[in-house]
Simulated assay, not measured.
Amino acid sequence: MQIKRNVLLNPGPATTTDSVKLAQVVTDICPREKEFGDLMEYCATEITKFVGDPKDYVTVLFGGSGTATVEAILSSVVPENGRILIIDNGAYGKRMCQITKIYKLDTVVFESSSIEPIDLKALEEVIKGEKGLTHLAMIHHETTTGLLNDIAAVGKLCATYKISFIVDSMSGFAAIPVDMKAMNIDYLAASSNKNIQGMAGIGFAICNKKALLATESIPMRNLYLNLYA
Rank of each mutant, 00 (worst) to 15 (best):
D179E: 09
P11Y: 03
F165G: 10
I115S: 14
Y228W: 13
V78E: 05
T144K: 06
S76I: 02
E130R: 05
N81V: 01
D106M: 04
V108H: 11
A68R: 03
L123G: 10
T48S: 13
V109H: 01
V58N: 04
V70R: 06
Y161C: 08
N81D: 15
N222M: 01
L136Q: 03
D38W: 00
A152E: 14
K162S: 15
K4M: 11
C30L: 10
F36E: 06
K209M: 07
V26D: 11
V26P: 04
A189N: 06
P11M: 00
M170W: 01
I185C: 06
L147D: 02
N89H: 13
L213S: 08
I151A: 12
D53S: 09
C97F: 07
I151G: 08
Y224H: 13
A137I: 07
G129K: 02
E216P: 00
N81S: 10
I185K: 02
S169P: 12
G132R: 00
C207I: 00
A153E: 13
I139D: 07
E130N: 06
V26T: 15
V58D: 08
G64D: 05
T134L: 05
G129W: 01
L61N: 12
T16M: 05
I3F: 09
I163G: 10
Y42K: 15
I127T: 07
F36Q: 04
S192F: 09
A159E: 05
Y92I: 07
S191K: 01
